[in-house]
Design a protein around this nucleic acid. Structure first.
Length: 211
DNA sequence: GTCCTGGCAT
DNA sequence: ATGCCAGGAC
C-alpha cells in the first residue's frame, strides 16, 4: 500500500485490511471483487490485484526466498520488507535515499534506512534541499558540484534562478549548495521517530554507516 | 531503456 | 493546465 501512497493515507486502510484479512491464507481465499472493493481509494488498483495474487502464491507455495518473485514486489519493496519486517541487512534504496547517497557520495549502511528516508523526505528534498538544517550538509559539501550536475544540460529543462544556480548552468535536480566546510556541533541526525542515530564532530555520516 | 498511473509541484 | 515524479513490469 505504501508504494506511491502516503503513510497517512494508508494507515487506517491498512488496519482495516489486516482486520479483515489477517493472513496471506485468508487474503488468498477472498474474492477478487472484494479485494478490489477494499482497495478503493488507495489508487493504483493493480497493486491490490498484485497483493491478492501474491497472497495466493504464498498460500499455495509458501514464502519465496526472493521476495521479488511475488507479483508487485520489485527490488525496493523486497529490500524494504527485508529491512523493516525481517531485520535483514539490506538497504531499501528509494528515490529519497538514492538522492541523499548521490549528494553525499556516501554508501550508507542498512541501519540508517529509516533515518535516510526521513532525511530525504523532509530535509534533503529533490527540488529545494534544506541544506541549512541538514545534519549531513558537510558530507554533501565534500562532493564536487561536477558530480551533482549532468555532463550536458538537459534541453527539456529550463534553467532556473535560485540559490545554487552557479556556473551559469541549470541544476535540474536541485543539488545541495556547496560551501566551504566548517566545524559543526554534534547532535541527533534526525528526529521524528526517535531513531537512535547520532552524529559525531568530525565525520557525522560515519556513525550512520556503522563504519 | 519505455510504459503505466495517481499524486504532486509549478 | 501542464509536466514531473516514482516503483514496478517488461
Amino acid at each position: 500500500m505504501l508504494q506511491q501512497t502516503q503513510v497517512e493515507r494508508v494507515v487506517p486502510r491498512y488496519l482495516d485490511w489486516l482486520e479483515r484479512w489477517p493472513s496471506a491464507d485468508e487474503l488468498a481465499a477472498a474474492a477478487v471483487a472484494d479485494v478490489i472493493r477494499a482497495w478503493q481509494g488507495l489508487g493504483y488498483n493493480r497493486r491490490g490485484l498484485n497483493l491478492h495474487r501474491a497472497a495466493q502464491r504464498v498460500a499455495t507455495e509458501g514464502w519465496p526466498d526472493d521476495l521479488t518473485e511475488l507479483p508487485g514486489v520489485g527490488p525496493y519493496t523486497a529490500a524494504a520488507i527485508g529491512n523493516f519486517a525481517l531485520g535483514l541487512d539490506v538497504l531499501p534504496v528509494d528515490t529519497n535515499v538514492s538522492r541523499v547517497q548521490e549528494r553525499t557520495g556516501h554508501r550508507f549502511s542498512p541501519a540508517a534506512a529509516q533515518a535516510l528516508m526521513d532525511l530525504g523526505a523532509t530535509v534533503c528534498l529533490a527540488r529545494i534541499p534544506r541544506c541549512g538544517v541538514s545534519s549531513i550538509r558537510s558530507a554533501a559539501e565534500a562532493v564536487p558540484l561536477r558530480r551533482l550536475v549532468p555532463a550536458t544540460p538537459r534541453a527539456d529543462v529550463a534553467p532556473r534562478d535560485g540559490v545554487g544556480a552557479s556556473a551559469g548552468r541549470p541544476r535540474p535536480r536541485g543539488g545541495p549548495v556547496p560551501r566551504p566546510g566548517r566545524p559543526r556541533p554534534a547532535g541527533p541526525l534526525w528526529n521524528e521517530s526517535h531513531t537512535a542515530v547520532t552524529v559525531s564532530d568530525t565525520r557525522p555520516w560515519d556513525n550512520v554507516t556503522g563504519a
